[in-house]
Design a binder for these strands. Structure first.
Lengths: 333, 333
DNA sequence: TATGTTATGGTAAACGTTTTCTTTTTGTTC
DNA sequence: GAACAAAAAGAAAACGTTTACCATAACATA
């Protein structure tokens, strides 16, 4: 590998001078010298060693992005948002899939720490956060931003799940539905709790009593939505006429189950999901859903992190707006 | 930040000794000394500085993963595969989205080079490869593995697109279809060319003449599949009875268009896609498709790269098997 | 002439590790 | 008790940068 020394020798100057032209330093350099250095750099194919540089400057221009699983369709949008802004600001992103495993999370935190990343963006909540707090923040801090709900005392970027869920259910109520079931996320998920709360508030505001069979716990996976349908009253005059699922995957599972039972969506049962994963617009009928601005969540998180790294104050919480994307599954053409 | 010196002082030994226990060196260390060092490390919360280490050792245990767009549902599976193996082998992954832009690709290659990544995995072909060859490999090499077809002289991990496409079409022929249309990828894509070739060979082997209107060029996006349907003969006895799309997104677009025209899938028109993105099993009817083992592509690519980095010989091409995932869109229950 | 000042450039320490080479300590053998 | 070997530990150079500080030359100023 060619080093700054080689360049210096080749250009007939000191390494100091090479370093100066490399970094556009304040220090005056004569045009001829600069030219010679630039020529030497080109000629030798010199690429400064970022590690030596980082060692000296104590910054790596690298951040860690920790999430449960990139293969979950909710996350790629976030990642892309983070990455775009990171790239624009000269940062590089290390991707860490934790599968929500505490072990693996800690493992990654150790590596990120050893690699001296300048900052970290977390998403995926829960156990991950605990591990992080313990491990990362308590022993010397690394700038960190969290996407989503969290208990830690860290800057967060999130959406208002209670409100968004409420709006989704209000939409169904406005269409005349009263008997509305909901497929929730796992009870431990704060996100799921918020979405359930939104459902409750909308129903309550409308004076509709929620019947016991209407709330079915899922796990955010396709299958749990599919299976939830089996537990719902679908015939007789006790039957439900709409389903609000806590995410799109479960909503699509529910649609599939309804389809297989010969129940028409949206004619007999309307369905609304949550997240607006890419898939949502492609299924038939196209899924009405709460659009979570995943890309913007990523973009904003990285922006906040960059502010933090620049030593500026950042808001403790940034809340991004959702909007209801009404498609075919909840409304007749 | 606490350094190895602090640990040494705290444990009353030299940095050499600390380094030795840190790296489980051959050099004998008395149990008591080791204990003292370990205790000091723990007590001070010491995390070795990977950059200083890398500078010395000339390896970063980091690799770059270059792809067009993580938000494209084809890629997360690959990324996950790469990441899993990388993690297992002690590597960290830097994610680079290029949007197939030559500019951005070169930009990233520069950064990866400066950060002295140990290796690179490329996927997404085309322009990217050119940029890479030029920039990366010609001036001092970095271990590299390519996923998919490529022209460069680099170890590759791929599937046999010709064969896989042929099998997909043979499946349709076996079901009795003769008038089979195909929605291709962009003409410049080698992948698309291979898949078209497979279609041709299957038809030819069966003695079916391909009519001009049957081959419609798409661009691998949902919309082009949707729009392709408009150009197909769908009524009269010249009508096609099956569609082979070069990827799932286009296949799903086609299904949507057929649905809107009141044409039943698979009863009136069968559809087969390619890739087996997660979405494929969730749409209605569930999409029959050629299952590309994306996760395994990632896993294998990283394994090959690791071999390369260990200085071992690797096969120039590793071909992974595809299989046809027959679901509802091409066969009646 | 002595003294600054400015423009340009260089020397060498520092960043935090690993590792080669030495040194010290301990133990064994005759 | 001398001689040596083995075990344990340390000193210092090296990795490739950045930068504080210093040096020189040219020129202006009093």
């Amino acid at each position: 590998m060619v080093t700054i020394k080689d360049v210096a020798r080749h250009a007939g100057v000191s390494v100091t001078t090479v370093s100066r032209v490399l970094n556009n330093s304040q220090h005056p350099i004569s045009p001829e010298t600069r030219e010679r250095v630039l020529a030497a750099i080109k000629e030798l194919g010199f690429y400064p060693n970022a590690m030596a540089r980082s060692l000296q400057l104590n910054e790596t221009k690298t951040i860690g992005l920790i999430l449960p699983d990139i293969a979950n369709p909710y996350y790629p949008g976030i990642v892309r948002g983070v990455e775009d802004v990171a790239h624009e600001k000269g940062y590089t992103v290390i991707l860490c899939n934790t599968d929500r495993s505490r072990e693996r999370t800690k493992e990654y935190l150790r590596v990120l720490r050893e690699k001296r990343v300048d900052g970290v963006i977390f998403t995926g909540g829960g156990a991950v956060e605990d591990a992080s707090r313990e491990h990362f923040f308590e022993q010397g801090s690394v700038a960190t931003v969290v996407i989503g709900r969290h208990k830690a005392d860290l800057p967060a970027v999130q959406v208002d799940n209670v409100r968004a869920a409420r709006e989704a259910v209000e939409h169904l109520l406005r269409l005349g539905h009263r008997r509305i079931a909901t497929v929730t996320g796992p009870a431990v998920s704060t996100t799921a709790r918020d979405r359930l709360e939104g459902y409750r508030r909308a129903m309550e505001a409308e004076g509709v009593d929620i019947e016991p069979g209407w709330i079915i716990e899922g796990d955010f996976e396709f299958n749990s939505g599919y299976q939830a349908v089996a537990q719902m009253p679908l015939s007789g005059n006790q039957r439900i006429t709409a389903i609000f699922a806590h995410n799109d995957l479960m909503a699509i599972g529910a649609i599939k189950a309804l389809y297989e039972r010969g129940i028409k969506v949206p004619e007999e049962v309307a369905v609304v999901g949550f997240d607006n994963i890419p898939l949502a617009s492609f299924v038939t009928p196209a899924l009405s859903t709460v659009a979570v601005p995943v890309y913007d969540l990523g973009v904003t998180a990285m922006r906040v992190l960059a502010e933090l790294l620049a030593g500026r104050k950042v808001p403790p919480v940034t809340t991004l707006a959702t909007h209801l994307e009404v498609r075919e599954s909840s409304i007749l053409k």
